[in-house]
Design a protein around this nucleic acid. Structure first.
Lengths: 96, 96
DNA sequence: TAGATTTAGACAATAATTGACAAGAACTAA
DNA sequence: TTAGTTCTTGTCAATTATTGTCTAAATCTA
């Protein structure tokens, strides 16, 4: 599940209007709409607030958000998978 | 091996001066110096030119470059590894 | 249709990145 | 040492990307 889809489905499950979520995030409906359509990426602060507003596990949302940042960096590249694997190796190494 | 290190060691192996590499990349020595110290990230175009100038396999350099972009996105995050793994899964899935 | 919700477009404000310059630091050779 | 060369650092304007907000149009609902 993609971030935007999760946000939209969660909002609908909770029967919230864009305007209600927007006010909790301190922005307007247009921005929330765009986020739900994937036209805009939420900022990290917005992720924090969205997790609360929509009652989503924060780490789940943050992971999705980070993952999509990564995805945007490499999508369409022939070397995408290899590059990501390399990063993973690096992260694992420095974890020790 | 990190991108900046590779670039510097390759240049030294080939006994090139910063000014020589700089001219091949169409920039000045300051920028090359910063790139070799990791203070600046090369642009994609610069990666292309650096591969030629330093006689490095282009895909190797590009992979490192992409990998470091990814790394910058997630470094320091508790969820870094998990997020990258998730991206990898997504990339593999859409590859099919 | 009227009223509400959602979406799309545009644009200024803000932030991030880049290239370039100049001056200083480090090194080398005589 | 000193002169000449190479490398590094700091700064800053220019470019580019991102963000928030406004307005109006589209879509939905009763």
């Amino acid at each position: 599940m993609i971030l935007s889809e999760l946000l939209k489905s969660k909002r609908e499950t909770k029967n919230l209007l864009l305007r209600e979520v927007a006010s909790m995030i301190d922005t307007d409906t247009a921005l929330i709409s765009k986020i739900e359509k994937g036209d805009r990426k939420p900022t990290r602060e917005q992720i924090d607030k969205l997790a609360i507003a929509l009652d989503i596990e924060h780490s789940k949302l943050l992971k999705l958000w980070l993952s999509e940042k990564v995805y945007e960096d490499v999508k369409g590249e022939d070397l995408a998978i290899e590059a990501v694997k390399l990063t993973l190796k690096r992260l694992k190494t420095e974890q020790e």
